[in-house]
Simulated assay, not measured.
Amino acid sequence: MFSKIASQLRKTNAYTLQDLMHTVRGSYTPAINTELLTEVYNVKQWIEPHIAGTFGGHSKPHNFRFRRVNGKVKMNYRKWSTLPWKPVRKNDAEDSDDEMNEADESDGLVCLKTIPSLDEIPEWVIPSLEKLDVDAVRKHVPNSYGHRLPDYAKASWRDFFDNIKKYEQVPEEASTWPLKEIVDYCNNRRKSPPEVNVTGQTEERVEKLAAIIEEDNTHVTIGKQGKRQPRHVETVVDFSSLAAGSFVAVYCPDYTEVPQIGKVVSRDEETFNIHWYSGKWDSVWSPCYVTQGRKKQPWVDQQVLASAILWDFNLTAGRKLKAKIKNILKAKYASLVVQ
């Protein structure tokens, strides 16, 4: 989603906050709902007294799981979806290097020592403009960008600065708590689950998925017996030649356009950093950049090694895909992209 927003902003001028919201809405299908939040609940203040302890290392894992175990909410984590959940169970801890506190018991980490009441509505976060040098920004916008701004944008910025104090105002107290409404809604759905209306299209997709799951791709060979190769073969992929400076083609389901090509910036045992390139099957390929402040920086993402489908190839002198590489990639993407 964020790559789509970035792509739309590269070709669309967003002079005001309203322009930005409009651009974000139109950058994705189905359209993204954008709203300007003027009040934010102080959830930190509300939940802090109930937290079991200081969290550490939680920026590294990519997957988290929360479950209710014996009346307590416990958390498990793992770096990748193919790895087992941590912490390990006590039964398995003897064969593992991972250590667990006894307070964690055997099914995860306890996040909350007590449960906050949903009847206690959090207060509002009190907005403050102290860290924003309003006068400096008021001068900077017209002086640096005034000659580029259309009249409506100039008027919008004038109105913003003239009424900026209103952003420090919040209602006296919150009268509703959306979290309680969500919990009540979920409880009601459990009691009376809605009827599922399966359309013809949905039924067809389910049948295709079931066929894929039930498809038997096993094929045993002994010597020359059963020489035919299976359609899908589990192989161990050697990523040793995927090195910094080489071109790589990847498959990221989050990005709808293919091919997805870039240059390897760096790598480790599980991931690599890719500097994205933009182009089409038959067009010139150019490195992508993003604007940070007044400087352009290479657009670099981190990908898992398993997302790489072809690497260690070069473009032509005209910075296009070679015919052989193009044919290989088309075949690979055709086998990966779900129609």
Score class of each variant (00 low, 15 high):
R10P: 02
K11T: 15
A14K: 02
Y15M: 10
T16G: 05
T16P: 03
L17W: 08
L20G: 05
H22S: 12
R25K: 13
R25Q: 15
S27Q: 11
A31V: 09
A31Q: 12
I32V: 13
E35V: 10
L36T: 09
T38G: 01
V40F: 04
N42M: 01
V43G: 00
Q45L: 03
W46M: 04
I47D: 08
R65E: 15
F66D: 07
K79N: 08
K79D: 12
S81M: 08
T82G: 10
W85I: 02
P87E: 14
K90N: 08
N91C: 08
A93W: 00
A93K: 02
D95H: 09
S96Q: 07
D97R: 03
D98P: 00
D104S: 15
S106K: 05
S106N: 14
L109M: 12
V110G: 03
K113A: 14
T114Q: 14
I115V: 14
E123K: 06
I126C: 00
V134T: 14
D135R: 00
V137E: 14
K139M: 06
H140I: 01
P142V: 10
H147V: 13
R148I: 09
L149R: 09
Y152T: 07
Y152G: 08
A153V: 12
A155W: 05
W157V: 08
I164H: 01
K165P: 01
E168V: 03
P171M: 03
S175N: 09
S175F: 03
W177I: 07
W177R: 04
L179F: 13
K180F: 01
E181L: 10
D184C: 01
Y185K: 11
N187F: 04
N188P: 01
K191W: 01
S192A: 12
V198N: 01
G200D: 15
G200N: 13
E203K: 12
K208V: 05
A211S: 11
E214V: 10
D216M: 04
D216A: 07
T218W: 02
H219N: 14
V220Q: 11
T221E: 14
G226A: 02
R228Q: 08
R228T: 10
R231N: 13
V233F: 00
E234K: 11
V236W: 06
D238R: 03
A244G: 12
A244M: 06
F247P: 09
V248G: 07
A249I: 08
V258I: 12
G262M: 07
S266A: 14
D268I: 01
E270V: 13
E270S: 10
W276C: 09
Y277N: 11
S278Q: 12
G279Y: 12
D282I: 02
S283D: 13
Y289M: 08
R294H: 09
K295L: 11
Q297P: 00
W299I: 01
V300Y: 05
V300A: 05
Q303M: 15
I309W: 06
F313P: 02
L315K: 02
A317T: 11
K322L: 07
A323L: 07
K326D: 04
I328E: 15
K330Y: 05
K330F: 04
A331I: 04
L336Q: 12
V337R: 06
V338E: 14
